[in-house]
Design a protein around this nucleic acid. Sequence first.
RNA 1: GGGCCUAUAGCUCAGUUGGUUAGAGCGCUGCCCUGAUAAGGCAGAGGUCACAGGUUCAAAUCCUGUUAGGCCCA
Length: 1059
Amino acid sequence: MADTPTTATGSTPWRHIPAQVDLPALERDVLDHWDGQDTFAKSLEQTAGGKPWTFFEGPPTANGMPGTHHIEARVFKDVFPRYRTMKGYSVERKAGWDCHGLPVEVAVEKELGFNGKKDIEAFGIAEFNAKCRESVLRHVDAFADLTTRMGYWVDMEHPYRTMDPEYVQSVWWSLKQIHDKGQLVEDYRITPYCPRCGTGLSDHELAQGYETVVDPSVYVRFPLTSGPVAEKAGKPVSLLVWTTTPWTLVSNTAVAVHPDVDYVVATDGNESLVVAEPLLSALGEGWTVTDRYVGRDMERWNYQRPFELVEFPEPAHYVVLADYVTTEDGTGLVHQSPAFGADDLIVCRAYDLPVVNPVESDGTFQADVPLVGGQFFKKADEDLVNDLRDRGVLFRHVPYEHPYPHCWRCHTPVMYYALPSWYIRTTQVKDALLRENEKTNWYPESVKWGRYGDWLRNNIDWAVSRSRFWGTPLPIWRCADDHQVCVGSLAELGELAGRDLSATDPHRPFVDDITFACPTCGEESTRVAEVIDAWYDSGSMPFAQWGYPWAEGSKEKFEKSYPADFISEAIDQTRGWFYTLMAIGTLVFDESSYRNVACLGHIMAEDGRKMSKHLGNILEPIPLMDDHSADAVRWFMACSGSPWKARGIGPNVLNEIVRKVLLTYWNTAAFHALYARLADWSPSAGAPPVAERSVLDRWLVSETHRLVRDTDEAYAAYDTQKLGVLISQFVDVLSNWYVRRSRRRFWAGDAGALATLHETLDVLTRLMAPLTPFVTERVWQDVFRPVTPELAESVHLAAFPQYDETVIDDRLATHVSMARRVVELGRSARAEAKVRTRQPLGRALVGSAAIADLDDELLREIAEELNVGSVEPLSSAGADLVEFSAKGNFRQLGKRFAKQTPVVAGAIAAADAAALAASLKASGTATVVVDGADVEVSADEVLLSERPREGWSVVNEQGETVALDLEITPELKQAGLAREVVRTLQEARKNSGLEVSDRITVWLTSTDPELSDALGKHADEIAREILATDLTVSMPPATSSLTTGTEDDLGLTYWLTKA
RNA sequence: GGGCCUAUAGCUCAGUUGGUUAGAGCGCUGCCCUGAUAAGGCAGAGGUCACAGGUUCAAAUCCUGUUAGGCCCA
C-alpha cells in the first residue's frame, strides 16, 4: 500500500502491524489503493469469462440527498456480488438513476414558487422540463461519494438514466408490445380531483388535506322490482341503502352486497326492508324478520333507482356482489356510482355496467339535469335529500362526522372523479404473475405469499398514465376516429412523420408537436397528452438499461443477463419496484426479471424512531462512516439483528461492532505477524502435518473448515444474520481461546501453531472480505502478501476459501467444548473459594461424564489454564467422597412415556442416585419404581451428577462437576509468590515501554522472609518468564540508571534495564 | 377499515422439530486474568417471555382473540 504506516523490519518480510488501528484512516488508504490499482475493474476483467451471475441495481432518484438508510440496500447489493465474484462468477454491476416522476416536478414547482399545473403551462413545458432534468441529477455527486465511501462497487461511470433517449425508446418498445396485445387501453380511472383547481391530486397531496366535516348520511329505500321478495303480501319491499354522498345517488348504477353476509327481510307491518343481519338494529324498534338470504343469492335482483334525473343505459340498477362491502356501519347494502368511487368502478366494470357521470369537471351538475343542474356537487345534497323526503323514499337522515379529503391548496372538498386514463391490463396476466412468483425466492419467505402474494392475488389493472409533464411520454398517437398507433422508437416515429427524428428529445413538449397522417384513415394523428408512471420506467431497467432492442449489442447483453439472480431493496418496494419489475417482465417476456429478492426492513435512529428532521435524530451517512468506519456500518446493516426487520443504528451498536469484531480480528492478525516475525517464520517453510500438531491446532483446522462450510451456505442463502453470528463467534473463540491457550507456543516460534494460525487468518480474511472489504484488504496487503508475494494482488481478486468435509471433526469439537466448559466451571470454583488464579493448586477433579471426553492433551490445557497441578477423575477422590444426584431427561423420556413422563421423572429423582449410577455404569440400564411397577430406564434417559462431600470447592451445573483441592502446601504457596513476582515484573516491563522480545537485566530485594525464600527457589523460572538474561537477588550497583518500583503487598523492590 | 410484520432483562437482540433451571451483548456491582487486544473470565443484581383464553404429560415456541408499535394499502 502506498503510504502505509506499517514497515518492513530488517531482513524479514514480516511487517510491523500496530496493535492499535484507526479504522476510518485505514479505509481512506484502502480506497486510494483500490483507486490506484483499479481493483474493481480488475475483478470484473478477471471473472469476465466466468458464468454470469446477474444483479440489477434499483435506481435511486438523485434529486434528494442520500441518507444513512441508503447504505442498507447498497450493502446487500455489494456483499453478494463480491461473494459471487470470489466464487468465480462474472457479476456485472451497472448503476442507474431514476429521473422522472411527480416528486421531481413537485420539488421544482416548489423552487419556482408555482401553485399548480396552470403555472407550469404558463412557464412553458420545455423550460419546466429543463429545470426537472437539471434537478434530478443535482445530487449525483453526493450519491457517488456515499457509494465510494462505503465501498460499494458499482459502475458509476456508465450508469443507465431513465430520461436518456435510448432508455426512453426502450420503454416505448415495451409499451408497444403490450399495446399490440391489447393490454394497454384507455378507460376511466377514479382520481381524487380538485374541481376548483381542475387537477388530480397525488396520494401525497391527498394525505395533507384531510379535514373533519359533517356530511348528511341518508338511509334510502330502493324498491325491489324483481326477485323472490319483490312482492310481499301487497306491501312494498325495498333495499335499504346508506350513503354519505347523496349527490352521487343521481348516478346510482347498482347496489352491492357481500356474497357471504346474511341479509334479512324485516317488516314493521307497513313495509319490508332488506338489510344485513348484523345491522338490523339500524332500523330501530319494532321490526321482525320474515325472510333471510345469503348475499350471493341476491345477485341481479332489480330495483327502482332513487332519482330519474338523467338518462341511463340499461341494463343497470340491480344487486351486484362485492367483497369489499362491510357490516361495520350503514346497512350492508352499498350504493354504487362508478364515476365517483374507485371500488364502485371496479365492481361495476366486472358487471359491464355503464359509467354515467352527470357532473362537469368544474364540479357542477350538467345544466340540463333537472333539480340540481348547475349546482356545485356538495351543495346539491340539500335539494336532493329534500326531494327524497318529499317522495317518501328517505328512511332516515342523520348528520355524519368523518374525515374527508380537501384540496391542500384551496380547501375545496375533493371529488373522486372518473377521468380517462390508460391502463395496463395486468389482471389478464394474473395467473402468469402468480406462476412467476411461485418460482421466485423471497427473503424473508413470508413476503412471498404474504404481503406481496396478497397484492398479486388481488391484482388490479395498472393505471399507468399521468397527466403531467416530466416523464416518459406515452407513445400513442391517434386520430379523431380513435385509430391508435403505439410507436416503439424515434426511428419508427420518423417513418410515420416522414422525416428524420432520430435526434429529437423524446420528451414533452417536443414529441407533442409531432403529428402524422393516420395509417388507417389518413386523418391527422396526434399524441395523447399523458406521460407514464415513473414506476414503469424503473421496472423496465432489465432491458432498458441496455437500450434493448435498438442499441447496438443490447440483445446479447440482455439475453445474457435475464432474469437477474439477485435484487435487493427495502420492504416499501413490494408494490413498487418489486412489482413493476415482475409485471413488466411477465407482460413483455412472459418471465419475471428476477429469481432471488432480499426485502429489507427500514433503518431507524438508535432510539427506534424514524430518522426525521423534526425529531433531530438524523445521522448523516458519511460522517457516520468517518466516525465508526464503513466496515462497521456495513457489518451493522448485514449482521446486526434481522435485516428483514426495522433496526435502529447509532454509536453504541457501532462501537460494539468495532470492538468485538473488527478490532479483535485485526489484533489477532497483528499478534500473528508479531510472533511470526520474531520467529522469522515463513509460510513456505513447511509445517508439521496437521495430524502431528497439537490438539488445539487440529481443533482450529477443523473449526476453520467448518466455518468455511457454514459461511458458504449462509452466503448462498442470503443469510447475513447467520454470517454475523458465525464470524463473530469464530473471531471471539479464535482470539480468546485458541490464541490465549497457545501463547507459549507462539513465544517459542512453534511451527505448527504459526502455520495453523496463518492458514486460519488467510481463510477468515477471505470469507469476511465481502462483508468488511476494507480491513480485510489491509490485512491481506500487510500480513499475507509481503510473505507470500504470489497471492492475488487484492483479497477481492482472491478465491473464496474451500473446505474439506472430511477434515471437520465433530468429536474433537465436542471434546474441546467440554474442556472449555470444565475451565469455566474451574474458574467459577476458584472464585467461590476466593483463591486467585495465580495461586497454584494441587489438583482439580472432574466428573466422570466429562472426563470421558478429555484426553491427556486437553487435560494438560485445562490444568494450565486453571493453574492446577493435575486434573483427575472425581472418582479418584475415593468412592465414598462422591455423592450422586439424578434427574430425568424430559426430552428423552417424553418420547417413550408421553403422559407418564412427569411420573417417571419423579421416580428417577426419588430413587437412590448412587445405586442408579452404579447400575447404569454396569449395565447401561437401571430400574425405578413407578406406581408400584418396575420400569427400566436407559442411560440417556437419566441425567446424573456427582459431587464430593466436603473439603473441596465444588461447582456443579447441568450434570458436570469440577472440584478444586484447596490444600495449599508451603511449596504451592512459594510457587504462588513466584507467580506474583513474575506478574509484577511483566507489568513493569510493559510500563517501561519495552518490546515484547526485549531481554532485560533485573535486581530484586525482599522485605519478607517467605518471599526471599521463594525468590531463591524460583529465580531461574522467574528469569525465564520475564526474559531476564541476568537476575540478581540484591540491590543494583548505585551508578546504574534503572527502572525501579516496589510492590508493597509482596514486600518486593525491583530494578530493571534493557540487557 | 383491510393485509402483513413485530412485542423475550434497564437498553439492543438470540432462542432450532414444543422438553430439564429462557440465553448473549451493552450498562451496573464485586472479584479475577493478561508477554497481541480498545480485550477476556467468574460471580451478583435484573424476566408475569405484551395481555386473555385454548391444545398438550409439557408452551417463549402451536391455535384463537385483545392491546400496542411499524410498514403497505384503502
